[in-house]
Design a protein around this nucleic acid. Structure first.
Lengths: 155, 155
DNA sequence: TCAACGTACATGACACGTCATTCATTCCAC
DNA sequence: GTGGAATGAATGACGTGTCATGTACGTTGA
């Protein structure tokens, strides 16, 4: 332990607060989305990106890249969303291994209904209490963490 | 949607980066802890607080408060840790409803072995790349979020 | 052309977190 | 004191995330 210095008091405080805020924030947003719209935060993210995509469809590996999820998580999640009728899968003729995920009408309806309240919640629980400098700091720190954790950049 | 304005571009960017960094960071730390020491990040947090506590024991509601977890999460997690021999439960004579959770020798051994590498990982993946101003910003933002989400402060 | 390797995706098993509910005990107003 | 509310904690059911593995297809090079 002597050659691996522990964190400073400031760092410990920041770290614990960060972990707790994470937990609570995502839990609260999940609750809000679930009770208001029957969606989870994960469902919401998937539907957002499918809505943004051309034709409302996307390849799983593309979703994986954009969402930053693990492959099996995405696969399981899509299976569950398909079972609930929020998305559908089509085969991909360009690549026999691949598939297309597409948003269904029910999926579009669900996210359209969910969006206003969800955005409101995100602002209420997060952005409304932060200065623009703090928002910038969050973005910078998060981006830094992401690039450092990116397996394609093991500098 | 017109009366519930969407997030600004900066906010959207910050939000997505924040969510992704969260996911990746905790996933990476969990992997590191798991492969190096057979513990999860949650196990680690519980053991840290039990180690800090007098006699290496604590009431569940106290742990709940310190960790910021939901009651049932803690209860389930303690049950799993107990099954693995990391903690034990005793009855509480002060309060017939309550219980004591105490760290076992195996638990102490596990966290002692895990700590150096884990701390190192936290620094490598997080603090080493942040300025002191950024650490301060993280702490402030997280604390702000926590106080806003605290059910005891519904201002 | 075909063997070896890489890529896209799915799946089973298992750990984890939440919700709803339950239970025992303690606290408190009357 | 006593009945009702509040508190401390456990549990079953269920959705979620990860790991290890499997499978099918594509790509490359000798």
């Amino acid at each position: 332990m002597s050659d691996t210095p522990w964190l400073t008091a400031d760092q410990q405080h920041a770290w614990r607060a960060y972990l707790q805020a994470q937990n609570r924030l995502t839990a609260a947003l999940n609750r809000q989305l679930q009770t208001d719209s029957g969606l989870s935060l994960s469902d919401y993210e998937v539907l957002v990106h499918l809505t943004d995509a051309a034709d409302g469809r996307s390849r799983p590996y593309e979703l994986q890249r954009v969402l930053g999820w693990e492959q099996s998580r995405l696969s399981h999640h899509l299976a569950r969303m398909q079972k609930r009728g929020l998305v559908a899968r089509n085969e991909c003729h360009d690549d026999g291994r691949g598939a297309y995920v597409l948003i269904t009408d029910a999926g579009r309806q669900a996210i359209t209904a969910a969006a206003p309240r969800h955005v409101d919640a995100v602002r209420r629980m997060f952005f409304d209490h932060l200065s623009t400098e703090q928002v910038t700091a969050i973005a910078e720190v998060s981006t830094k963490v992401l690039t450092r954790l990116d397996p394609a950049d093991p500098s």
